[in-house]
Design a protein around this nucleic acid. Structure first.
Length: 478
RNA sequence: GCACGGAUGGCAGAGCAGCUAUGCAAGGGAUUGCAGAUCCCUGGACCCGGGUGCAAAUCCCGGUCCGUGCUCCA
């Protein structure tokens, strides 16, 4: 069963064939840390988290590189507004990024490359482009000259030089002070007074936006690599600029073998973005929903599809996630140790799950299978099935809902959670047990009114009472 | 305007030629004093108009509507 992935450049799903057998090299454009991370960043990070997890599951040795654009105009702007060093701005937002991504169970990349730590490589690359006459010096910096490689234009977006020329309309001439052509883009920006800068052969300044990714992917992954990822909105001009830079610098085509782009998060049908002001930060979202429930929400559609974000989808995901976790915990209480491979039901589930994931990482299909396992597991539990069967199902959930989809909290986290609940339980258990005895007595006397009164009282203590054939059970609402 | 996507039941959202998607919601039932949790069953859909095929939600042509990109953006 071959893995098929959608390549933006060729606009079709292709069988994945790595450059080096058994290995995958991945570079994904990261964030510009000028403000706290929003849901769009979560979607990108989770999409590629899933992709790397699946590659590992298939047995590939994965090298996953991403980056922080830790110097740019917006960071400088914030720093000036707050009268602090630009590095303070980037550091606090990078801290926020790691904080929320850890909570979302996004595994760490092998490397988080920073622009400020890649300046020599960037300068080298620009020098090569200068030597090869692909770049020119203008009054305000160094620019890449599109006309030196016109055939490379529009590889990801299907546009030609002419289309952009005519379509740009009023924008022509407005952008980039020293550009010869409005479609040229900056490789190096000269520093204005008061701005942070690095010395270079072309004067003090800082890198343009696009060159960093070409330099960083070259630095960490070499001249060619398997997958380059990022949000759809980066296709043009950012990724097309990368194609110009890397291919012209290295004198080769297909530096990147497969281009992958994740879909956007929408609000009221429109893309969530800073400029529209319709964004929600990840931290804010955690106020109303658990991190892994948000993860669930963002994996509920295949990574390329847009996702409509609103309160009801969040609530629905919270419910699904709760059901998954509750079932998992219930099973864990019964299970001993789990080997699922001999179970026919689980074998067929695994096959469909794998087919789904192998079809361009279709997590929606994977979720359907997880749901069917949960359902079956509930049935097994309520029928008082044998421990080893339940253990097998638990083992499956650990492997697929846990390791692959990242929806089960880690052992440490579960233990901490269990300790907290135990502690809360212990604090009130004497009282609760006593009330339950009174309630049972009332129930035996068919004094339903009093019995319900006690249950209401327990509810107000965040205690949920569930009657069962084995007598009442209670748990603390979280 | 140009480029690239998308339009599926009340909602979310797969499928992309033949076989029940799935979940939520709705209706019915089991269990229960009631509730909760859980399980079972039911109805309900493929934007419009043409075409190709034995067969089309799925392919082709023409519309309509929506989104993204063409400026910083995950």
């Amino acid at each position: 069963m071959a893995l098929r992935i959608y390549d933006t450049r060729s606009r079709m799903k292709k069988n994945f064939i790595p450059l080096v057998e058994g290995k995958v090299s991945i570079y994904v454009c990261g964030i510009t840390p000028y403000s706290p991370s929003h849901l769009g960043h979560a979607r990108q990070a989770i999409s590629f988290d899933i992709i790397t997890r699946w590659f590992r599951k298939l047995g590939f040795q994965v090298t996953y590189i991403t980056n922080f654009t830790d110097i740019d105009d917006k960071i400088i702007k914030v720093a000036l507004e707050e009268n602090i060093d630009f590095q303070e701005v980037s550091k606090r937002n990078i801290d926020n990024y790691f904080d929320v991504m850890d909570k979302l169970n996004v595994l760490r990349a092998d490397e988080y490359s920073k622009v400020t730590e890649t300046i020599p490589e960037i300068i080298d690359m620009i020098s090569i482009l200068m030597n090869k006459k692909h770049a020119y010096i203008a009054e305000d910096g160094v620019y890449f000259e599109i006309d030196t490689a016109p055939e490379k234009y529009g590889q990801l977006t299907g546009q030609t030089l002419e289309m952009v020329r005519s379509g740009a309309g009023g924008r022509v001439g407005q952008t980039g002070g020293g550009k010869r052509d409005h479609r040229d883009f900056a490789l190096w920006k000269n520093a204005k007074s008061g701005e942070p800068y690095w010395p270079s052969p072309w004067g003090n300044g800082r890198p343009g936006w696009h060159i960093e990714c070409s330099a960083m992917s070259l630095k960490h992954l070499g001249e060619t690599f398997d997958i380059h990822g990022g949000g759809r909105d980066l296709m043009f001009p950012h990724h097309e600029a990368e194609i110009f830079q890397s291919e012209c610098c290295l004198d080769r085509e297909n530096v990147v073998k497969y281009w992958l782009h994740n879909g956007m998060i929408n609000v009221d049908g429109e893309k969530m973005s800073k400029s529209l002001g319709n964004f929600t930060t990840i931290s804010e979202t955690f106020d109303s929903v658990k991190p892994l429930a948000l993860r669930y929400a963002l994996l509920n559609a295949p990574y390329r599809q847009p996702i409509e974000f609103n309160q009801s989808m969040l609530e629905e995901s919270q419910m699904h996630y709760n059901r998954l976790l509750n079932t998992y915990l219930e099973a864990a209480n019964i299970a001993t140790s789990g080997v699922w491979s001999k179970n026919i039901f689980l074998n067929s589930v695994t096959e469909r799950f794998t087919q789904g994931m192998n079809d361009d990482f279709n997590t929606r299909i994977a979720f359907v299978e997880v749901q069917s396992v949960i359902k079956k597991l509930q049935e097994l539990i309520s029928n008082g099935n044998k421990e080893d069967t339940i253990s097998a199902f638990l083992g499956w959930l650990d492997e697929f809902a846990g390791d692959v989809l990242g929806l089960i909290p880690g052992v440490d986290e579960l233990n901490t959670l269990a300790e907290e609940i135990d502690k809360k339980r212990n604090d009130i258990s004497v009282l609760v047990e006593e009330l339950l005895i009174q309630r049972q007595k009332a129930r035996e006397e068919k004094n339903w009114e009093y019995a319900d009164e006690i249950r209401d009282k327990l509810n107000s203590m965040n205690v949920i009472v569930e009657d069962s054939p084995q007598g009442p059970k209670w748990k603390i609402e979280d």
